[in-house]
Design a protein around this nucleic acid. Structure first.
Length: 548
RNA sequence: GCGCCCAUAGCUCAGUUGGAUAGAGCAGCAGCCUUCUAAGCUGCGGGCCGCAGGUUCGAAUCCUGCUGGGCGCGCCA
């Protein structure tokens, strides 16, 4: 598939003939600069010093040892000692054949075949609707899960939640107070740090409407618990509906509470204690993190007997590793950054290889419109929900905007640009390329033409055609690397390049109505491009419109 | 004060794991539709890659120290 396979064995042999032991994989790069060939290697420069030779001269020795290589039209030494390789068009034609033979599997890889991965994302507690900022975790997490799937891994998408803690009690109390207000008890105090959202009113209203008799008959404790349960159900329904709109579905909803039920929390602290990592101070149990190289010890069980979040988090990660996943991926926002080293140190102390755990931390999101920072919904003045964001700009734009930038950088979400339904919006650029191809294929069909694998593609020699094929041939590598480095934005970048290259090809090379042999070859190239674009968009969770 | 992340064109960001003359989009200017979708294409202008050292054939990229911004630093999660 990749170009380098047409030169690597020969290069390897040439190095051996010069008495050099080649590295396991010879490094190749695709030169940016026109005139530097299709592929380039710095192998001569990396060896020259150790051999006491001048890089350029050694490079020339390698080139001489290579001699003539089939399908290679030019090999030359350039710059400080690069070896630039220019292939004949035949290599591109062979690559296009290979791509076409993949059918709808273009961009897929099997590097992860037989391996399992658990990707945990979203994981918002059911205390309210998802807010707009949650969108990044949703889109990044789901795209990363897709990346693993496209690389052949068996993927479990997991949502971890806690419906038992203080926050849930606060939710219950807030709803209970609103219910009391509606039942005429207007002086009932609203909890100090309760939830003020509009949805609390909505939940209370539902309870009064549907459960008036029950709620008035219950004692206060039971009524509060009832409100909490109703709140949890409402919030979860809301969250799932929002995720559904983004086409996100989890396989597993893991309740933190279940870790207590089956004794895993207790077992975890006992195991840590057995290793001498737990001690008592001021009535609380402390986790001796300093013994594990961390800055300070932390409380792991409060003096009230309740664990802090660290303990169940360690138990949870141990559980995931014990479930046998080869890789465990956590998607967190930057606000959770401080907790990760503690949890990993705990898991490691329990004898697990934390190399298996990949933590992806995405930075925060700022919403901007017209140069102003947007923090609250214009409609309600309350917090800006993910639902509202989807309503305003559409699910495709939401998913794309949240993954188009590197996860490690702060993201500026330009609402003005996102709402733009025209040429300025980057997601439309990609979708337009796809729709444009589909349009051509429809037109071809009207003429009784269809893309055929048997087309004589050797007539594809235009630079725009060659460039497009070269780009498409790198898709699988792009998908593999995006997964390995957990960098979903590189897929967005890659697709932009493919779309641009296709638009160029479209502009320079007429497809329909030219000489039949060329028409057939270009039709096939267009269709291979369509399949690649379609797969890329699916990978990002973005729609693949056939008309725009 | 400590930890993690970030700093690249007027703005938003890429930068192929250390490579050759640092690239896109937007904004600005100038062009291209009697034929396949102009939501497209082409050209022009725009840079001390935050600052200062270091590592080496070679640094936007790696190391150290500064400066400026973000997120954390609880017996909250």
């Amino acid at each position: 598939m990749m170009m380098q396979r047409y030169i690597e064995p020969q290069l390897h042999a040439a190095l051996v003939s010069l008495g050099v032991t080649p590295p396991e994989a010879i490094a190749f790069g695709v030169p940016r600069q026109e005139g530097h060939g299709h592929l380039s290697t710095n192998i001569a420069m990396t060896f020259a010093k150790g051999l006491g030779k001048q890089p350029r001269l050694f490079a020339q020795e390698i080139v001489d040892a290579l001699g003539q290589v089939p399908l290679v039209s030019l090999i030359e030494v350039a710059g400080p000692g690069f070896i630039n390789i220019t292939f004949s068009d035949d290599v591109y034609h062979a690559m296009l054949r290979d791509l076409d033979a993949l059918g709808d599997a273009i961009g897929r890889s099997s590097v992860g075949a037989g391996r399992t991965v658990n990707v945990e994302y979203v994981s918002a507690n059911p205390t309210g609707p998802l807010h707009a900022g949650h969108g990044r975790n949703c889109a990044v997490g789901d795209t990363i899960a897709n990346l693993f799937a496209w690389n052949g891994y068996s993927v479990t998408r997991e949502y971890y939640f806690n419906n038992a803690g203080n926050q849930m009690n606060k939710l219950g109390l807030s709803i209970f107070a609103r219910v009391q207000h509606r039942l005429g008890n207007e002086d009932f105090p609203f909890p100090e740090d309760g939830y003020h959202g509009e949805y609390i009113h909505e939940i209370a209203e539902n309870i009064v409407r549907d459960h008036r008799v029950e709620i008035t008959a219950l004692k206060e404790d039971a009524a509060r618990a009832f409100c909490r349960k109703q709140g949890e159900q409402w919030c979860f329904a809301s969250i799932k509906k929002t995720l559904e709109a983004l086409n996100i579905h989890h396989d597993e909803y893991f309740n933190e509470d279940s870790l207590y039920g089956d004794g895993k929390v207790t077992a975890t602290i006992e195991d840590l204690r057995a290793k001498g990592l737990v001690y008592e101070k001021d009535g609380a149990q402390w986790f001796a993190l300093t013994q594990l190289g961390q800055a300070q010890d932390k409380v792991i069980v409060k003096s009230t007997g309740e664990p802090t979040y660290r303990l169940p988090d360690i138990a949870y990660h141990r559980d995931k590793l014990q479930r046998g996943f080869d890789t465990v991926v956590d998607i967190f926002g930057a606000d959770h950054i401080a907790t990760i080293p503690d949890v990993l140190a705990g898991v490691r102390a329990l004898g697990f290889d934390t190399e298996r755990v990949k933590v992806v931390i995405h930075q925060m999101v700022t919403f901007v419109e017209g140069g102003e920072i947007v923090k609250f919904s214009k409609r309600s003045g309350k917090s800006f929900t993910l639902d509202e964001l989807i309503d305003e700009v559409g699910a495709d734009v939401v998913r794309f905007f949240f993954v188009m930038r590197a996860v490690g950088t702060h993201l500026e979400f330009d609402l003005g640009l996102a709402k733009e339904e025209g040429d300025k919006n980057p997601v439309f650029y990609l979708q337009y390329a796809h729709a444009r191809i589909c349009s051509i294929l429809r037109k071809a069909e009207e003429k009784g033409l269809a893309p055929e694998s048997t087309a004589n593609i050797s007539v594809l020699t235009h630079p725009a055609e060659i460039e497009l094929i070269g780009l498409l041939s790198r898709m699988q590598t792009a998908v593999e690397r995006a997964c390995e480095n957990v960098e979903p934005h590189t897929i967005a970048e890659f697709l932009r390049d493919v779309a641009a290259s296709y638009h160029n090809f479209y502009h320079d090379c007429r497809i329909l109505g030219v000489e039949p042999e060329i028409e057939a070859a270009r039709l096939l190239l267009a269709d291979v491009t369509r399949r690649a674009m379609r797969n890329g968009l699916l990978l990002l969770g973005v729609g693949t419109p056939e008309r725009m």
